[in-house]
Structures are given as structure tokens and as C-alpha cells.
Nucleic acid binder design. Structure first.
Lengths: 113, 113
DNA sequence: CAAATGATTAAATAGTTATTGAAATGTTGA
DNA sequence: TCAACATTTCAATAACTATTTAATCATTTG
């Protein structure tokens, strides 16, 4: 995992329909779902689903396999785990993360967010 | 954490400059960095940084505090952890989920606080 | 108060993304 | 082969995102 791949993966998940599709596939398990079933479940048109699945597949977050006239999509758990590992690595400069969980200091400085 | 908040957070991280900014802040620790220092470090203009920090702040991934004329930005570790938890929850339909839930092979970095 | 500094906001623009309907591709079974 | 079905690709458009320059806001200091 590197920055560009992480951006691609994050972008793939950073959209309501795709995040929902991915989560449905995660819960569907390794067998996955046929594209048509997934489209119906999400309430979107087949071309719309195809567009979004393309993004997820390019990011490596879902796998597709053809079975007869159906194409089954399933979640790529390992890719998901790689992304999570990347996001959480080098936290706190590699040092102990304890300081990060210290309550926000009530200094004279003004909190603006 | 819900779907919409997750999408906002993922979108905030799904851009090279913002992901890089966030990672720099994560490594900078709880004190964070002044906006100017961060802009210089990333090699982008102040307005560009302001635009990107706004996205990260709205997603709750960074905190800002004013100190004199400087505004210090720091990573919100707890928000990051919430996102990671959301992404990995309900994995495999709640059933046994060895592939995705196994401890990270090369590190123990999944938890960041 | 005025000047200087750090940062944000505004306006304009180029580039990217999502959505829709129509057409095309590929697979199965009569 | 032909008809039916599942899915994808194409083309057009609307909406959103990122970047730039100029202007504005806020804080400190002379």
C-alpha cells in the first residue's frame, strides 16, 4: 500500500452508493452477489451500479467472477485490511501513542473548531 | 459513526494533498503544526492548504486552535479510530472473520490511540 | 492607531465525477 | 441460429472539486 493506492481506495469508498454497495458485499460473505441482485438491493440502475463497481474493482476492493450469465461481486477483505493498516501506521511518529489520548488542554488558546 | 459521516471522512482523506497533510499531522503529534509550516512542508499555497484543512476539519479529522497569530492544526486520533472501527465492523456478516480481523502481520498498529 | 504578519475567504476557471437513457457485448437455452 | 437475459459501454449533461490570484479578517507590535 502506498499513498496513491490509498487515495484510490479511499475515493472508491468515499461515495454513498459505493460505500453501501461495499458494505452489502462485506455482509454477503465470500460468495458475493450477482450484479442484478445488488442493483435491486441498492435501488439503482444497472448502468449506475456498473459505474460504481468499476471504481471499487479498480481499487481492488471487490472481486468479480462470471458464472453463467451472472457476474458475482464479492468484497476483497484483504484489500480492506491493507487500507486500514496503512491509515493507522506511523501514528504519533511511531512513538507511544499515549499523548494523543490526553484530554485537550484547556490553555489560553482558543479552540476554533 | 454512520454512513454519511463515514463518506465525509473518507472523502476528506481521498485526495493526495489532504491525505499527506493528515499523515504529517499524525506524525507531528498532539501539538500539531502551524498552518504556514504545514503549507511549506507540503509545498502548496496557503489558500490551497486552507481549502484542504477545511475539508479535514469538517470531517472532524483535524482540530484547530489559535495561538497568537498562528493557527495550529493537529490530527484527531479518536475520529480516525472511529472511522476505522466503522469500516471493519460487521465484517463477514458478523460471523467468524479470520481474514479481515487477524492482527496485522507486520505490526500492531491497527489501534492508533 | 497604523503597519506587518499569519491565515482565511471570495471569485473565476479547469478538471473530475455521478447520473441518465440508448446502444452494444456476451451468455444461455429453445 | 435466434431470442431472451445480464451486464457493460457510450454519449451527454449536471454537479462537484481543486487551484489560482486578489481581497479580507485577525492578531501582534511599533
Amino acid at each position: 500500500m502506498n499513498r496513491d493506492r490509498a487515495v484510490t481506495s479511499l475515493a472508491a469508498l468515499a461515495q454513498g452508493t459505493r460505500l453501501e454497495a461495499f458494505r452489502v458485499l462485506v455482509q454477503a460473505g465470500p460468495t458475493g452477489l450477482a450484479a442484478g441482485d445488488l442493483a435491486e438491493r441498492l435501488g439503482i440502475s444497472p448502468p449506475a451500479l456498473s459505474f460504481h463497481l468499476r471504481g471499487l474493482a479498480q481499487a481492488g476492493l471487490v472481486h468479480a467472477r462470471q458464472q453463467g450469465r451472472f457476474i458475482y461481486y464479492s468484497a476483497a477483505y484483504d484489500a480492506m485490511q491493507s487500507l486500514v493498516d496503512f491509515l493507522t501506521e506511523n501514528c504519533c511518529g511511531g512513538a507511544a501513542c499515549a499523548p494523543a489520548r490526553a484530554p485537550a488542554r484547556k490553555s489560553t488558546s482558543r479552540r476554533i473548531v
